[in-house]
Amino acid sequence: MSDSTINLVQVRRDLHAIPELALHEVQTQQYLKKTIATFASDFLTIKEVPEVETALLVRLAGMHPQKTIGYRADIDALPIKEETGLPFASKHPGVMHACGHDIHMTVALGILAYFAKNQPKDNLIFIFQPAEESEAGGKRLYEAGALTGDFKPDELYALHDQPALPAGQIATKMGTLFAGTTEIHLQVVGQGGHAAYPQQAKDALLAACSFVNQVQTVVSRNVNPIHGGVVTIGSFHAGTIGNVIAGEAKLAGTIRAFTQTDLELMQKRVRAIAEGIAVACDVQMNLELIQGGYYPVENNPKTTAALMAFMEENPEVDFVEAQPAMTGEDFGFLLQQFPGTMFWLGVGDPEHSLHDARLNPDERAINAGVQAMVAYFNQQMGQ
């Protein structure tokens, strides 16, 4: 069912070799444009977005459109040095498609190639979105007005690859699939001094340690236990030498929850803890909490029920119901604006997780993903 004129495995390997960071996906966008140009379809329109320069939108006009179906693929990579040893490994030092966005783009191109040759009944739009890993590219596109008019979807779909699932398996669930996230950035400003005279200093390191310890109570004593949440501090820098009291400390971390209500509650409690420590330790706590476009990925009941029913009933699809994950995804913001569904696509590398420098997806997943979504879209359009 996929288009035989495009070598999807080669496309994936080409994209894997040229990973680029958020909002710098210039070479990636050029490759996408060049590939899409080969489809040579008279009902295909390409749109660029000046406010989000590396974005690329493609519209296929339907024969007898009743609605517009959207499909989104993220295109950015991560600041990770690749350690796969593959012959098509990253050519860009310190940057890698360790989250599988090369797979995401390739599946989207496969679906697009099919419908560029076989005109759909309804309109289809494909959103090649920059900056999912950081900088909230989905929110940027929406706020730029890119998803309006002929490019406004009535329903919207996207996948995320999952190395823990067998290659080609599809999984999703009703309700929240992924958590919403908020970045924590904290600068503690005290007053340095000699280790022998603590009364003359204001210990920023001690205050920062108190913050790390106390935020661990946010989930255990504020969030309903059946809801779930997490606060993690992953970066802590303070001090210069053992006999000097630190005058400054810097921390970074993340807050994650399955509902926006819980996420906002957790943000409120983290702020309160910082304010209390500032008073107790007589230091300045410069706290910044950044959610941006990283809302919980809440699947729409109607589109998700349709997708799940189709995948469960299709004998050619390996489908399982997913469990919710604390993974963050800026597709959650787009699902606040348009009804739609995100799903996992298994890529069969259980020894390596997402964001692992050794991640090596099984490329057989690509065609399975293309075929499943082509069949689903055809069914949704009554073709």
Rank of each mutant, 00 (worst) to 15 (best):
Q379K: 15
M342Y: 10
V218G: 05
L124T: 04
L186G: 05
M308E: 10
M174I: 10
A322R: 00
L124S: 09
R72E: 07
Q187S: 15
I111T: 06
S4F: 08
L307G: 01
I233D: 03
K173H: 11
F319H: 04
N123S: 00
N213E: 13
A272V: 12
P130M: 08
G137L: 06
H227I: 11
D102F: 06
F377W: 07
N286T: 12
L263T: 02
K302I: 15
V52R: 07
K173W: 03
V215M: 00
V215Y: 02
K67V: 09
A108Y: 01
D330R: 06
V370S: 03
H355R: 09
A131V: 08
L165F: 15
F211Y: 14
D262R: 00
V231E: 06
V9S: 11
L109F: 04
L109S: 07
P339N: 09
Y294F: 14
F319L: 07
L287R: 09
A368M: 09
T84G: 06
E312Q: 15
P225R: 12
I125W: 01
L307R: 06
T303L: 09
G332Y: 10
V317S: 00
L265F: 08
Y376D: 04
N300S: 15
E82R: 00
L307W: 05
T182M: 11
E183L: 13
V279Q: 15
P361L: 03
E183W: 09
D203T: 04
E155L: 11
I103V: 15
I36R: 07
V283L: 02
V107S: 05
Q200T: 13
K91R: 13
Y294P: 04
P198T: 11
N7R: 06
I277Y: 06
G242P: 10
A55D: 09
D14L: 13
I277L: 11
K91A: 12
T217V: 09
E275W: 11
P120R: 09
H352K: 08
E264Y: 04
G138I: 00
K202D: 02
D122T: 04
R72Q: 03
A17R: 11
A196F: 10
A113R: 03
I233N: 02
F151M: 04
L156M: 12
Q260I: 10
R364S: 13
P50Y: 07
E329T: 00
A375Q: 14
T68G: 05
H237S: 14
Q200L: 15
I69W: 08
E248A: 13
F310P: 07
A325I: 06
D349T: 01
I255H: 02
A195E: 10
D154H: 13
V244S: 13
V212Q: 06
T176L: 04
P361C: 06
Q30N: 15
A306S: 12
I273R: 01
G234S: 13
D76V: 04
A238D: 08
A61I: 12
S235A: 12
Q66P: 02
G346I: 09
Q267I: 12
D282P: 08
D318C: 07
M174L: 14
A158Q: 06
H104F: 03
R221D: 07
M381F: 01
A116S: 14
L206P: 00
A365M: 02
Q291D: 08
T68N: 07
H24W: 05
F43K: 01
E313F: 08
V283I: 06
V212H: 06
R358W: 07
